[in-house]
Amino acid sequence: MEFESIEDVMKRLEKAGYIASREIATVVFLAAAGNKPILVEGPAGSGKTELARALSTCMNRHKIRLQCYEGLDEAKALYEWEYAKQLLYTQMIKEKINDLISGADTIADAVERIADQEDAFFSERFLLARPLLQAISADDPTVLLIDEIDKADPEFEAFLLELLSEFQVSIPELGIRKAKHIPMVVLTSNNYRDMSDALKRRCLHLYIDYPEPALEAKIIRLKLPGIEKRLADKMIAVINRIRELDLKKRPCISETIDWAQALAVLRIDEITREAMSDTINVICKYRSDADMVKASMDRILN
């Protein structure tokens, strides 16, 4: 087994720079033990993609990333035949082909002889592996990150099913490719649309929410070791109060870290009105949100 226990997962993830809650660690542990993909949901900036990075670091595996978007298809995600190369090769070995069929008595015979060589043109040499095929055919085990799966079309989701349950892909010309090593698969979703039942059935589900204040403090101290405890606690209290507001985009853990960095660079060690309005753009990504925070500044700071 990859991990010994849930505690082991937590410890190793922490060493890789990721503080996991017990729930996250449990799901990661189970996924690693049972070779199951993890479907991670949660608000933007809560560390979904970061989890995959930390996993690849702590398991000492390569990370292969597939970013999904509308219109993503098999040719971009799985494999493509390198037609240009095939064409070039045919031109180069034209004469050789002439030699090959020179002794043939009938056309049927000539066709037969060429057909014998067909495999040469549909072989690995002309196959351009895209992330999914790379993950499956890699010599060492990998971590495969399929990012923002909800942005891809529903058809693409259907096409992932074979990969996620059997860890194999079918290439019509070559047959079925089985994975040499089963990759650790992490799918992330921002809840832009609902996933199909078939996909959900093949994955373990994990929801990463805004972290508990204690956990968030731990994360900040890990990312910025020099930060004063008093300041960090105050920051987290403020951020949590901002999260209670009815904002378009609530600040997540990544915004908290950015904010802490901004404060450190500006050498601010006291959160005051001025400090807040100077750095508000780090926390709020929309102007209307920033305005709303400014309007309720008194409540937030006390």
């Binding site: 729930e23 449990t26 799901v27 189970l30 949901e41 609902d194 059935r201 373990l204 589900h205 929801y207």
Partner: peptide
């Protein structure tokens, strides 16, 4: 917590 997390990961497959 671990027991619940394991069941949750298997039985409730979306935030909803």
């Amino acid at each position: 917590a671990g027991f619940k997390a394991a069941l949750k990961a298997n039985f409730a497959k979306s935030r909803r």
